Computed example of a mutant assay.
Amino acid sequence: MDRLPKIGIPLIILFIALVILISKSAVTIGSGEAGVLYKTFGGGVVTDEPPLGEGFQLVWPWNKIFIYEVRQQEVYEKMTVLSSNGLEIKIDASAWFQPKYESLGKLHQEKSEEYVSRILLPAIRSSARSVVGRYTPEQLYSSKRDAIQEEIFEETSKIVDKQYIQLNEILVRDVALPPTIKEAIERKLRQEQESLEYEFRLEKAEKEAEKQRIEARGKADANRILSASLTDNVLKDKGIEATLKLSQSQNSKIIVVGSGKDGLPIILGNQ
């Protein structure tokens, strides 16, 4: 009976040690995350194996797991860059990105968990300065926003693709010009619009006048042809035809042949 406590105490100690060991070794990786394993006595960061996936993971207590979000993420950036003529342009942009899953170990080893601030944001700023520097404020304000968005995306992708970062999209949300430049551009655009409207009205009036001239010429030509074709004999024939048609009417009438002007019949009746 005296030996039972002596056996029970080591078992309790072993159980407590086992619980501590499991608590130190167990790691839960959440949804949309992955883990990079660091082996303290085994060469450091593991780069030749896939990252640890979601769920419950057991590692030796002297090793570590660094957890990364591998879903698409968004980062915002406000920049001041120069246009082609040296004016300051403020750009409000955001980037959709995610770390390359299979290269997560190398990303952690070479760039660390601060890869967004160390790699991605500097690459976006550099690309934005390069792209915006090719355009004038007028181009940026009016028609080139989609173009600079695509060009910033392409140039940033070339930089970060080699740094184990997958860039999915660059969105230029706003391009802000100096107030005086913006007012001057808007005034110029209004003047151009008014000029285009005036030219349109002139062109429309000219087309309408040309239409009326064509119609007038057509009527004049028709009248001239008709006048040339109406000889005395033709008029007499037309008159005779009309008289014959009237004579066939049921209304009572008197026809005097050869008593009208030019020898045409005269029709007298009570209707």
Rank of each mutant, 00 (worst) to 15 (best):
L4I: 15
K6E: 07
I13G: 02
A17F: 08
V19H: 02
I22A: 12
I22K: 07
S23T: 09
S25R: 02
A34P: 03
A34W: 06
L37S: 03
Y38S: 02
Y38H: 04
G42M: 13
V45R: 04
P50G: 01
P50L: 03
G53H: 07
G55T: 11
Q57G: 00
P61Q: 07
N63Y: 08
I65G: 04
I65R: 02
Y68M: 03
R71M: 06
E74F: 08
K78T: 14
K78Y: 11
V81N: 09
L87T: 15
A93E: 15
S94T: 04
S94N: 14
F97V: 08
Y101G: 01
Y101V: 03
E114R: 06
R118E: 12
L120P: 00
L120I: 11
A123Q: 09
A123E: 11
S127R: 03
A128F: 07
T136D: 08
T136Q: 05
Q139D: 13
Q139N: 05
S143M: 09
A147N: 04
E150K: 15
F153D: 09
E154K: 10
K158P: 00
V160T: 10
D161W: 05
Q163N: 07
E169A: 08
E169R: 12
R173Q: 13
V175A: 08
P178A: 11
P178M: 08
I181Q: 13
I181G: 07
K182S: 15
A184M: 14
A184S: 15
I185M: 11
L189N: 12
L196Y: 11
E197S: 07
R201H: 05
K204D: 11
A205H: 05
E206W: 08
E206G: 06
E208T: 13
E208R: 14
E210N: 11
Q212K: 13
E215A: 10
A216Q: 15
G218D: 02
K219V: 11
A222M: 01
N223R: 10
T231I: 04
T231V: 04
D232F: 13
D237Y: 12
S247T: 05
S249D: 12
K253I: 01
I255Y: 08
S259Q: 14
D262R: 09
L264V: 13
P265R: 01
I266N: 12
L268M: 07
Q271L: 02
Q271W: 13
